[in-house]
Design a protein around this nucleic acid. Structure first.
Lengths: 343, 343
DNA sequence: CTGAAAGCGCTTACAG
DNA sequence: CTGAAAGCGCTTACAG
């Protein structure tokens, strides 16, 4: 156990230098791993630092070096929604972005923003971060409008923005739709309805719907217009949309939901109306929410590769992505029990 | 639109001072809201700053002022678990801690840590933060062991640690157990089983179990030993524990689960065994997970006040809590459909 | 391979 | 109410 100096006084590199009998600059080099330093010197410095309980002050180091080694992550949430009400999708993405940042040697500075008094993104200007990643619900118009101006900056990347003309990362929605629809077809479902929010401000859902339409021609299944009814939450939208679909009299034996949160509402109404899932109608979602494992029945879904999504966002914000590219997170089928088994 | 200088050169407070015709120190005071500055001067400075696109460099400001204005939040997760597999409870808590930090004027530096190469908590030593909040799964022994030494430091607070003798914040577990058990009783269920992980390393669950035992005497319902079977996930533990309970032949008409994640597994097995919830057996959970709204049936549960929990953690870490206090987050009943209606 | 010096961009006593 | 000076604790050319 080294002699720790009492924490009354902050130990500086100067004192370490004195104790080790070297110059302050040598302390800095030794501790930062500069290869020009002799092993013997480095060891001497390390020991002195340990004995004094010295740690470099990151504020000073960053000021002098000009770096921040930090990525700001802003999570946009809906006003008035508490922690338990935030779509788990955004939490998952947050976790992945933090992990990706960390893997690249960056700290993650995160803020949750829902209403105007919280809107803030000047992390780079104030030298708090080298880049900013924005993620969150595309339904908070005010928040995205506030951040709109920075969304095409080279040190920014986002997921979930309602705008298409920007530095965004998305799921591979076309491929996801293809896998979803194919899975329904394999289960013998050929009258496939699409439930989801395809308004202009929801580009990711529009992509899924557009792909569904294209695939209907290609693969020859019965499609139709997107079904969507307003509601407070995605689950409520799902419930009302499902009712609307049923009441329309339209025939269907499969439903492709634009997101899991809506699918949960759809599942509820189907059960309530006495329609068995998957025997009467198969349902597939999109997002890969973990809670889908506990819905009734457990929800089959398309899951984006979250780890990859985090990496893509961080790389994009750090300017490591080739110009003109729109990065896409790969997707995969998560087989559970809401779609009829093939054959 | 003010004349923005090209970003080739970083604008300093010195240049703003020149343009505004004041001293550098006046710029600093004017922009930081120092009340001794005249409105006229402040306005002059503000304008010069706007015209030059000046923003204070937070690294320099923090170095000089000695502050960091940052709280580090470390989220402990299980090794090998991806973003979708992290218990949503910890995400919710993370969101609340971030919000609480922000409300107090602090930034939140967050890291997810699961395995030894990621373990790190020297945020205060390296002047990256003024305090650290640790949250996460109590099942990652190695992680908590690594952080054990700092858990009684005045600038640290935690939630979920397997150790009891430390600066921890918890749900009001006794009150939660009381509300849960009373709800079951009100629904006419008097043979109440407890399913949960009550090993020593899970103090929060032990508290719930202990309260259940005490209440059994007080309120006069049939209790019994805690039922717990090992499993990879909480859901798996819940499934195996439910099977074990059923196979034991013990009579029960109500189950109090130590956490929602296990309750989801319990619900599955009950359905599989043909036991109707809540008609044959009522089930109540603990944690207030949002996904409980979509289980079958939707799970009645005890929810801690997450917003308050976040505030308590931040205040504790910031040394604003009275000495010797163990802060407790209040709890409330979230009525859904897994417990029989009273009367 | 190491030292001596300069300076990153601010804030804060200390004066007046 | 504002100015002039000092200095927070590092890193990095520049020498040798």
């Amino acid at each position: 156990m080294p002699n720790q100096t009492p924490p009354t006084h902050r130990v500086t590199s100067f004192e370490v230098a004195e104790r080790a009998g070297v110059n302050q600059s040598t302390v800095s080099r030794a501790l930062s791993g500069d290869t020009s330093i002799t092993d013997a010197t480095r060891e001497k410095v390390r020991q002195a630092a340990d004995e004094l309980g010295y740690r470099v002050d990151s504020r000073a180091a960053r000021l002098r070096s000009g770096k921040t080694s930090t990525i700001a992550i802003v999570v946009i949430t809906k006003p008035g929604v508490e922690a338990t009400g935030i779509n788990p999708f955004h939490y998952n993405l947050l976790g992945s972005v933090c992990a990706a940042a960390s893997d690249k040697g960056y700290q993650a500075l995160v803020s949750f923003q829902s209403s105007s008094e919280q809107f803030y993104s000047d992390f780079v200007e104030t030298r708090q971060a080298d880049a900013v990643v924005l993620i969150g619900t595309s339904t908070n118009d005010a928040a995205w409008a506030h951040h709109h101006a920075i969304l095409n900056r080279e040190d920014v990347a986002c997921w979930g923005s309602p705008y298409v003309d920007h530095r965004r990362v998305d799921s591979d929605n076309r491929e996801g739709a293809r896998v979803a629809v194919q899975r329904l077809l394999d289960g013998g479902n050929h009258k496939i309805a699409f439930i989801g929010d395809t308004r202009e401000s929801q580009p990711q859902f529009r992509e899924r719907y557009d792909a569904y339409c294209t695939l209907a021609d290609e693969l020859g299944f019965e499609s139709g217009p997107a079904i969507f009814e307003e509601g407070e939450t995605r689950a409520a939208q799902g419930r009302r949309s499902a009712r609307s679909l049923i009441e329309s009299g339209r025939k269907f034996d499969g439903i492709f939901c634009s997101c899991d949160a809506m699918a949960f509402g759809v599942l509820e109404v189907l059960r309530e109306k006495g329609l068995a899932v998957p025997d009467d109608v198969s349902v597939i979602g999109f997002d890969g929410l973990g809670s889908g494992a506990h819905s009734s029945p457990p929800l089959t879904t398309i899951e984006p590769d979250f780890a990859r999504a985090g990496v893509l966002l961080v790389e994009f914000a750090l300017g490591e992505t080739a110009e003109g590219t729109r990065p896409r997170a790969p997707v995969r089928l998560v087989e559970r029990q809401s779609v009829k088994k093939p054959g």
